[in-house]
Amino acid sequence: MSEKHKDDVTGVETTGHEWDGIRELNNPLPKWWLYTFYVTIVWCFAYWVVMPAWPYLTTEGWTYTKGAIGYEQRAVVANEIAAVHETRAEAMQRIAELPLPEVAADAALMELALGAGKAAFGDNCAPCHGSGAQGFKGFPNLNDDNWIWGGKLDDIHYTITHGIRWEAAPDTRNNIMMAYGRDGLLTRAEISDVAEYVLSLTNRAENAEAASRGEEVFASQCVACHGEGGVGNRELGAPSLNTAVWLYGGERADIIETVSNGRSGTMPAWGGRLNEATIKSLTLFVHSLGGGEDEAAPAMR
């Protein structure tokens, strides 16, 4: 602090500090301002009493003063969520009871179902299928028009309810893609030939002779499930082999690996874990992603 300095114009003492010739007047604070400050202090004590405020340690761990009115933000949120559930309860009940096409035909129910389905998808399905349902290797993309077990509403609903190769569910979708190489069912050369033939289905074969040898192998070993020309069979859950969509990759090496070691991806059965309204909402949501097939939804406008 320098010595006292008085401002010439106002006659007011300054704070004694100077910044490039600018000084600050040391004007008194109005008393009401001071009292306002005291009031805020009193307010804070009152707040401590009324609202949750101070953490403290007990033998059972940290807790906090709960406040006189018992306000708790978690309880507020829980109440709000319960209230939302209550307002939706009737509609969700209708979704659970009505056949899927009728839900789809009701704009208001459909809006609710798509929202609920999207939320349920994020909670339950996204870890494997991806947050955009884009899928990963071994986990199908649900946006495309390629379905292993069928893309109609009922197909999707069945898949979600019973899962795929899910032992705990008696009605689960099940099949076996055998490990032709590992189990010695086909020789390496045969596997290579059949891979060449599978590539030829999408016009990517490089060796016509090998492909033709592979066709014979295919006819004896694969055609029962994958069908003539590799069109696939949804009844059996056999993927099509003549499209641009590959669950485990469509390059030569991927195909050879699939034929050699087999594939048996699983999906949990959600029936019993999720309620019917949620499963139906999920079905409608997945169906709406762009690959949903129409036949099962004739009530559409």
Binding site: Q134, N141, D144, N146, T243, A244, G290
Partner: peptide
């Protein structure tokens, strides 16, 4: 435009954007 997924490959190899 949809960002997740950016695009979808369809059975016939066509590309679809949402």
């Amino acid at each position: 435009a949809d960002r997740n997924p950016l695009f979808v490959v369809l059975s016939d190899g066509a590309i679809r954007n949402g």
